[in-house]
Design a protein around this nucleic acid. Sequence first.
DNA 1: TCTGGGGTCCTAGGACCC
DNA 2: TCTGGGGTCCTAGGACCC
Length: 421
Amino acid sequence: MFALCDVNSFYASCETVFRPDLKGRPVVVLSNNDGCVIARSAEAKPFVKMGEPYFKQKDLFRRHGVVCFSSNYELYADMSNRVMTTLEEMSPRCEIYSIDELFCDLTGVRNCRDLTEFGREIRATVLQRTHLTVGVGIAQTKTLAKLANHAAKRWQRQTGGVVDLSNVDRQRKLMAALSVEEVWGVGRRITKNLESLGIKTVLQLADTDIRFIRKHFNVVLERTVRELRGEQCLELEEFAPVKQDIICSRSFGDRITAYEDMRQAICSHATRAAEKLRNEHQYCRFISAFVKTSPFAHNEPYYGNSASVKLLTPTQDSRDIILAATRCLDTIWKNGCRYQKAGVMLGDFYSQGVAQLNLFDENAPRKNSQKLMDVLDRLNTEDGRGTLYFAGQGIQQKWQMKREMLSPRYTTRYADLLTVK
DNA sequence: TCTGGGGTCCTAGGACCC
DNA sequence: TCTGGGGTCCTAGGACCC
């Protein structure tokens, strides 16, 4: 038996926790560069579209008195940690699935207590400790638990935010009322294809012949269908598997046209990617960089390109990664473009210690590389990111992203502590 | 003027092996 | 007229998730 707990309107709720004056008002949180809407409070949901550009809805927001925030990831990450710690205390085995979602294994819990009651206790505890509200969905498989969670949210008033879907008759009743697009793993494309085959409700999907699904789709959807029938195909992943690639990319606050600015941006992304790589205790051989202009600017030609290198010896040294990334940039840089976004990607990972040195590598391994990286990481952890940085990252960084409606980092900076009058 | 930033898994097809 | 059969590995692209 699984439970899926997720925080209602997570980013928007993190903002309102510290702003009781916003109670009852529509609140939205925007993506980086204040680009798109990525979270909405319950009050904003009826008339604000998810994923829509901010600039297109600005007037609407003004008319409705919508309060906007730039995304404040430092705040959300800290609030997420508080929620997850609380949930992990209450449940023996957990999987943190995303910044605001967690699966619990309730296998043993079922024997000693009522699951709905347990769900309510989870809700009450998280609410008391964080002032955030979670929805809880309970069922035999992860896919069904997700569906139960969806129902808990959709009919929050009737369900009290907790739905135990372990009863098969209840499962079928709910599935008959929901359309296939609500199923975890069924996106826009598959919804369209299913509908063209006459499969519209979740119940119809669950009752479709497995061989038919396999023939028209793939093994991924087959697993989803089996899970909807109560057959467990997905395990609880208690321990995060090691990453297979790392990407650092950003849109620019203003378009970049000068090579020097782009070089700084690529250098910064490479530095950040190298930090993440060392944090994973990995070495990489594959390094690539990409640049692109805006895909939405119809009055100028689109240009997007990427280049990559494969090192002979795996590395985790920022200097190697910066060098490789900027070399990639030099092969794809084109003058005269108004660049909107750039990034660096690392892949082909090797674990620490098993990196095989190459007999013919003309670049001898750097001396004291590890010691230097240790010092770099320690200073930047203890005294804050950016304490020690590479000259190539630049000092002005006029390409930095825009965040004009940023809230204070209430829980992680003394200077940002909430003042109570 | 202005449209996010990460990730995962699977499949098909090509190159290559004997 | 007619040119096998069985594999592996890698990559690009498409789908999905939050």
